[in-house]
C-alpha cells in the first residue's frame, strides 16, 4: 500500500470520527445532511458485499466493517436518537436524494467491469458515491453559520478523495496491469465536485461573506 492510499484511508476515517465525535459528545447533527449520510450507508452496503466472498487483508476487512458500521449508526442517530435528531436541519435538507439512485443503477447495469451481481453493485456504489455529497453541499450553502466540526468533516472528505486520485496515479505508474476506468472516472467526477465547492467556500471565507454557489 502506498502513502497516498494510506493517507486517503486515514483522512476518510478521521472524517467519520469527526462526525461521530460531534454526534456523541455535542449530541448535535446540525449542518449534517441526513440525505448524504443515507446515501453513504447505501454506498458502503452495496460496495462491501464482497466481504462475504473475497478476503483481501485484515486491514481491508476491518476498514470495511468500520465504514459500514459508522455510516449505518450515523443514520440511526440522526433519525432515532431522542436528542441528536432534534438538531437535524430537516427543513433545509430537502435534496431529493432517491432520484440520484435510479440513474446510478441504470449506469451500473450498462457500464461495469463484469456483468455479475457483485460487480453491478460495486459499480453502482461508485457512481452513487460520486454524487452522494451533493445534498451535503446544498445544505452547507444554505446554513448560515457552518460550525468547525462540519467544516472539518467536509474538508477531510475532500482530502480523502484528492489523495485517492494521487494513489491511482502512483499505482498506474508503478504497477503492471493496474487500470480501473470506472473507479477513476467516477472518483475524478467526485473530486471535481469537492474542488468546485471548495473554490467557492474559500472565496466566501476570504471575502467574509455568506457562501453563495452559482445557480
Amino acid at each position: 500500500m502506498n502513502i497516498f492510499r494510506l493517507a486517503g484511508d486515514m483522512t476518510h476515517l478521521f472524517s467519520v470520527l469527526v462526525l461521530l465525535l460531534k454526534i456523541h459528545t455535542i449530541k448535535s447533527c446540525a449542518g449534517i445532511s441526513l440525505k448524504t449520510q443515507e446515501l453513504y450507508a447505501i454506498v458502503f452496503t452495496t460496495r462491501y458485499l464482497d466481504l462475504f466472498t473475497t478476503y483481501i487483508s485484515l486491514y481491508n476487512t476491518i476498514m470495511k466493517l468500520i465504514f459500514l458500521g459508522s455510516s449505518i449508526s450515523i443514520v440511526w442517530y440522526m433519525r432515532h436518537h431522542k436528542v441528536v435528531r432534534r438538531s437535524y436541519d430537516k427543513d433545509q435538507d430537502t435534496f431529493r436524494h432517491y432520484l440520484l439512485m435510479l440513474p446510478c443503477l441504470l449506469l451500473a447495469l450498462l457500464i461495469n467491469e463484469k456483468f455479475t451481481f457483485l460487480e453491478v453493485m460495486w459499480a453502482f456504489s461508485l457512481y452513487l458515491e460520486a454524487v452522494a455529497i451533493l445534498p451535503q453541499l446544498v445544505l452547507l450553502q444554505r446554513t448560515r453559520n457552518i460550525d468547525n466540526l462540519t467544516g472539518q468533516y467536509v474538508l477531510l472528505l475532500g482530502a480523502y478523495r484528492a489523495l485517492y486520485v494521487l494513489n491511482w496515479i502512483y499505482r498506474y505508474f508503478t504497477e503492471e496491469n493496474y487500470v480501473h476506468w470506472i473507479t477513476w472516472v467516477s472518483g475524478i467526477v467526485q473530486t471535481l465536485l469537492y474542488a468546485d465547492f471548495f473554490y467557492y467556500y474559500f472565496q466566501s471565507w476570504k471575502n467574509n461573506v455568506k457562501l453563495q454557489l452559482p445557480a
Binding site: 484511508d9 464482497d50 473475497t54 483481501i56 467491469e113 463484469k114 457483485l118 460487480e119 485517492y164 494513489n167
Partner: peptide, 10 residues
C-alpha cells in the same frame, strides 16, 4: 466457476 474481480481498494 467464474473468477471474481478483486477490488483491493475501499
Amino acid at each position: 466457476e467464474e473468477d471474481a474481480v478483486q477490488h483491493d481498494e475501499l
